[in-house]
Design a protein around this nucleic acid. Sequence first.
DNA 1: CGTTTTGCATTTTTT
DNA 2: ATGCAAAACG
Length: 725
Amino acid sequence: MKTDYKKELNPKQYEAVINPPGPLLVFAGAGSGKTRVLTYRIAYMIDYFGIDPREILAVTFTNKAAGEMRERMRQILGMAYLPVMLLTFHSFGARILRETYGVIGYRKNFSIYDESESLMVLKRIIAEENMERGDLTPKAAKYLIGRAKDDMLDPDAVEAKATSPRMRDLALIYRKYQQRLLELNAFDFDDLIYFPVIVFDSHPNILNRYRSRFPHLLIDEYQDTSNSQYRLVQHLAGEHKSITAVGDDDQSIYGWRGANIKNILKFEKDFPGTKVIKLERNYRSTQNILSAASGLIANNDNRKKKALWTDIGSGGKVKVMECSDEQSEALTIIDRIVQHRKGEGLRFSDFVILYRTNAQSRALEEGLRTSGIPYVIIGGVRFYERKEIRDILAYLRVLVNPDDDVSTRRIINTPKRGIGDTTVERLFAFAQKNRINMLTGCFLAAEGKIPGIATSKIIPFTEIIKKLSAIRENGEPLSSFVDKVIDISGYRASLSSTSDPEDEARLENIEELVVGVTTFEYRNPGATLEDFLEEVSLLTDVDRWDPNADAITLMTLHSAKGLEFPVVFIAGLEDGLLPLIRSGEGEDLGQLEEERRLMYVGMTRAKKHLYLTYSRYRKRYNSPTFSIPSRFLKEIPKDTLDFYTDTTKYYSESDKARRSGKYGLEDIRQGSFPIGAEVYHNRFGYGIVLSTEGSGDNEMVTVSFNRIGRKKLMIKFANLLPADK
DNA sequence: CGTTTTGCATTTTTT
DNA sequence: ATGCAAAACG
């Protein structure tokens, strides 16, 4: 009773699925059944080509996507357990390092540092080396080091390439940073790709082991692979070249993170004899939505042309809604949600609100809360990044990896036990001098062996660590162990005995962590604390999202990749916000194209209804900002759109001019110049006013000049003239 | 020496 | 508005 592959797939999908193992590239347009092809192909390989599931490695973008694929394959193959290796790039990297850490000098049970932990290390190094400079903040250094790792450059290479003092400084910081990470027995996210490549580069025997272990490779979202990930793939593919890559150049949205769209475009060259299949039939969206999205993306030059089609029917037009401010934007959306839900019997979980930046979620959240509509926010302050969760995880990490001084610092005085900065710094200095970790230092201090450190303050801390290690060695089950950590550390007590009302929420979060551990335990019988920590470090927010809960989902456009919803709202379609353009800088065409792809990704999430909303007024950073509608709205074919103006309320008093222009509201005169006004500057030439903020002497205008692009000017000094004078 | 308070910068997107 | 650094306070 094998699955009838031919019946369940369209001809193109079928062709891809049954293609014999070898280089295969599938250009899968949005909603064309990409995951379907991947899962059926894996199933088919097992079913018809007799391939051992353990020899298949499939790399996906999120753990959730991996989980879904596993579930669907189970249905196709009817097996209870499928030993296919289904992972994200980063978790695969972590697996490799767990087996090969020794060859690069690392120890067992290393930690994986996220952004903020890496930044703490960098900050310390920059301070220690007296290298503070405005253009090399910890954040900037982190970014540049990340890019260097993407290009597989070590500190020596960065130094050799450096042509400026800034880059020479960076090379030094980079060197110290890696030394420190090695001491801490910790990797950052970029290392999880970088070091496996290094290992494969320098140890052919190890590489061969992995090659023969995974002769069959499948890679999802290939358009978002970075250079280092590409190197990893090249290594693994080796001579066998049974490699399937699936992707869509129009959905490449991680260029800022090192993703290189060229990787998918040159796949055919890299693997001669590649079979290329294009999936252009869309099963998700109505014709109107698809035409709107296709019309938009056609404005990108740097892409492979394709013709998506659907036979779902035209559906309603895409609705563009103008709102006066963020609050009315929220109300407009809520109003539509309520109507659709009643009219079409939809559930809350059928709706998603997408936006460019996490900050936008606030006003929407407020509106939903007052309306009593259940919602879930994905992203923003991630669950595992909350302070209280990180604190508990830091305890766990120290127990697993005693060299992890970053975590030791975190917990040594959390909850407060009277150990201050001075003591910690003395401890650190002593540990550095004697080449030991801080935890060992604590134990020495507790015995009074470090002059200048009072034993009385340190002993309670070392007692806690001792107790917890003993419990752990007794083979305590994971969830009850975590529970004991919360108790014995004094964390639970410190939260339940305070006046701060926030602490109650923190306590709840911590209890939720225990629930999370229990779930993890249940899903992965026999898993260790190390396994749990690895999973937690690499979990994304989308992974934690439960699509079955009856609540509206709010998330960024980036997080929405790979998902679909009957009704989609994209909020904040204002020039400067979507496309997001950082003030000061001119407009980079490549970046603009990526913003357009991001918008495209958002639009193609919609099955039945798509709403695009924008606000004339919004509080950005801290100051009030007026904006013009996104240029993307003008790029979408008009016959697919319907325009609406909200009726909730208006910020501006000069309502009368509202309906004058193409989108209405062309003539709001908030400051000295109306939004959209053409102006002349005697140095920069002609331009158009995009937004104004502040007032009086502090009034600023952002003007997009024809010749030199975007500039922010102070009205007081700029001497701007209306263009027709 | 440690903790609390005030002042200051700060927001793109994420594995 | 919020979160993290120096300064004041205990």
